[in-house]
């Protein structure tokens, strides 16, 4: 192919090829108007990232759409209320949890419950932390005192989760109050009937949260012995270590 030298610049020339294209080439001592063959053409640098981006962009868009639909769905799925724990001292509070046991909602069921929650935000916290903090607030506000009773009523479709939460709440709240005040902790399953509740109340168990008790508050024995659904666990916390031991033995 022949080229006409159209313009000479410092370092390069502009050529017109037979296809009607204007190209830049090395100036090998050419003159304007000269017809040449075999020039050293300037190589057009096509940036590879641009090409890559052309391929990646649609894929990234599709991935983003998937993430938007499914990721949001998964997030929503996890954030949905899966379990509710009803905390009753005198104030009654409904604690809604997601599948991970994180608090996603707090509602005061009665007037005292609303007072207890006034100015408190437990969203995003673990259920145990929220339970401990609400109990502390109840003590500060005078709702809970020596010899009082804390009831956790767990509403969950999963019996294993009920057992797990029951053990966790009992163990941690007992430890949290250990050496401060003596209270009775009751853990019930919302799905059991009233008759079963009455029956299970009769079979309830009392333990003391003091450090010298013979039965560990963290022991899973009472919970593990619960028949599926409908049984209540009640732990009576006594100040006196000896009485505590006696009670445990009697229960056994």
């Amino acid at each position: 192919m022949t080229y006409i030298v159209m313009e000479c610049h410092k370092g390069y020339v502009i050529l017109l090829d037979e296809n009607g294209l204007f190209v830049k080439a090395a100036d090998l001592h050419y003159q304007v108007g000269q017809t040449i063959t075999d020039p050293v053409l300037m190589q057009n640098k096509r940036s590879s990232p641009r090409i890559a981006w052309r391929i990646v962009a649609p894929l990234a868009a599709i991935a983003a759409c998937f993430l938007l639909f499914f990721g949001f769905g998964i997030l929503q799925h996890n954030r949905n209320v899966y379990t509710s724990i009803y905390l009753a001292i005198n104030p009654q509070v409904q604690m809604d949890l997601d599948r991970d046991g994180t608090v996603v909602g707090l509602t005061g069921i009665n007037e005292d419950g609303r007072t207890l929650l006034d100015g408190y935000d437990g969203n995003g916290k673990d259920k145990i932390i929220v339970a401990d903090e609400l109990i502390d607030r109840a003590i500060d506000m005078g709702f809970l005192s020596e010899g009082g009773e804390i009831s956790f009523s767990i509403d969950t479709p999963d019996i294993v989760l009920f057992q797990e939460y029951g053990i966790e709440l009992r163990t941690n709240v007992t430890q949290h109050l250990d050496g401060r005040i003596t209270v009775t902790i009751a853990i019930t399953d919302c799905h059991q009937t009233e008759g079963e509740n009455t029956l299970s109340s009769a079979l309830s168990q009392a333990i003391s949260p003091t450090p010298n008790r013979t039965q560990s508050p963290g022991s899973s024995a009472p919970i593990a012995s619960i028949p599926p659904e409908g049984q209540e666990y009640q732990e009576d916390e006594n100040e006196d270590k000896d009485e505590d031991d006696d009670d445990d033995e009697n229960d056994d």
Binding site: A25, D27, H29, V40
Partner: peptide, 10 residues
């Protein structure tokens, strides 16, 4: 030198 100059332009 001309080749080097066009390369610089590139």
């Amino acid at each position: 030198l001309s080749i080097a100059m066009i390369a610089f332009h590139e």
